[in-house]
Amino acid sequence: MTLRTVNAVEAYSLMSRGAALVDIRPADEHARVFIPGAVNVPLDRLTHAALPDASVVIFHCRSGNRTRAHQAALSAAAICESYILEGGLDHWRKAGYPFQEDRGQPLELMRQVQMTAGALILLGIVLGFAVNTAFFGISAFVGAGLVFAGATGWCGMARLLAAMPWNRRPVATA
């Protein structure tokens, strides 16, 4: 079933009348920036029982892409009137509505993986040209790891980064 989208103005109005706002992003993304009062129910834990008890539910993610891509699952989980926040958190912020940001929280794990993979690939290329062609192997290894992660859903780099001290801090909840 296709869920109707609501813009930030409509969502704010619905929330003032008791609608529940549900953030479907992973906990690490929610901890870094969130809409006050939003309940964090990541997609991988989305069930009717996990949703707040409300007559109207508005789902959101960062940009609206995840909510649109998973609207069948969102609709199935919500047995009440439900909507998708158009443009997600990004449009909410642009509209000037309140949000909280905790820059003390670590970057989202996927962004850490992207930055680390990119840095290692660049390092391998630079060292391959400047020092020894054997260093191109670093880039090949990281590239193969990314292909493997995409094909299997298991990412060794993400597991390694998740175990780093900066990612083991408690995640704040809204």
Rank of each mutant, 00 (worst) to 15 (best):
E10V: 04
A73G: 03
C61Q: 06
R66W: 08
T133M: 04
A11F: 04
V113R: 03
M110F: 07
A8F: 04
D90M: 05
Q112Y: 03
R169N: 06
F141I: 07
T47A: 09
A69I: 02
N65M: 10
G64D: 08
T5E: 15
L146D: 07
F99H: 12
V41E: 03
H30T: 01
Y12C: 02
P98T: 14
L74W: 10
L123R: 02
A77W: 07
D90A: 14
L21I: 01
A162E: 09
R159W: 11
A50W: 04
A27S: 09
R17L: 10
R68A: 15
I58R: 00
A130H: 04
I35H: 06
I35N: 05
C80S: 09
T152G: 06
Q105E: 11
L127C: 13
L107G: 05
T173Q: 13
G18F: 00
E81L: 05
W154T: 11
Q100T: 12
R103V: 06
S139A: 15
G153Q: 12
A54T: 00
S13Y: 03
A19Q: 01
D90S: 13
S16F: 02
V113K: 05
V33K: 05
V131P: 02
R45C: 10
I79V: 11
A130S: 11
F136N: 09
A38S: 14
L160H: 07
G124N: 13
R103Y: 01
V56E: 15
M157I: 09
S75V: 00
A27T: 11
A69L: 12
I35S: 05
A119W: 03
V113L: 01
V22H: 02
D53V: 08
R159P: 00
A119V: 13
R93K: 15
M110T: 15
G96Y: 04
R32S: 12
Q71P: 03
A20H: 00
A149D: 07
R62Y: 13
A69S: 13
V6R: 05
V41I: 14
R93M: 14
M15A: 12
V9F: 08
F59P: 00
S75L: 00
V57N: 01
G118K: 09
Q100L: 10
I121V: 15
V41S: 08
A140F: 12
L107W: 14
M110V: 14
I35C: 04
M110H: 10
P170Q: 13
I58Q: 02
D23I: 04
V147W: 08
R45Q: 15
Y83K: 02
T5H: 12
G128M: 03
L160I: 13
T2I: 11
Q71K: 05
G37S: 10
A144T: 12
Q71L: 04
L21P: 07
Q105G: 08
T116C: 10
G156H: 04
C155L: 12
V57S: 01
L43H: 10
T47H: 09
A117V: 01
L161P: 07
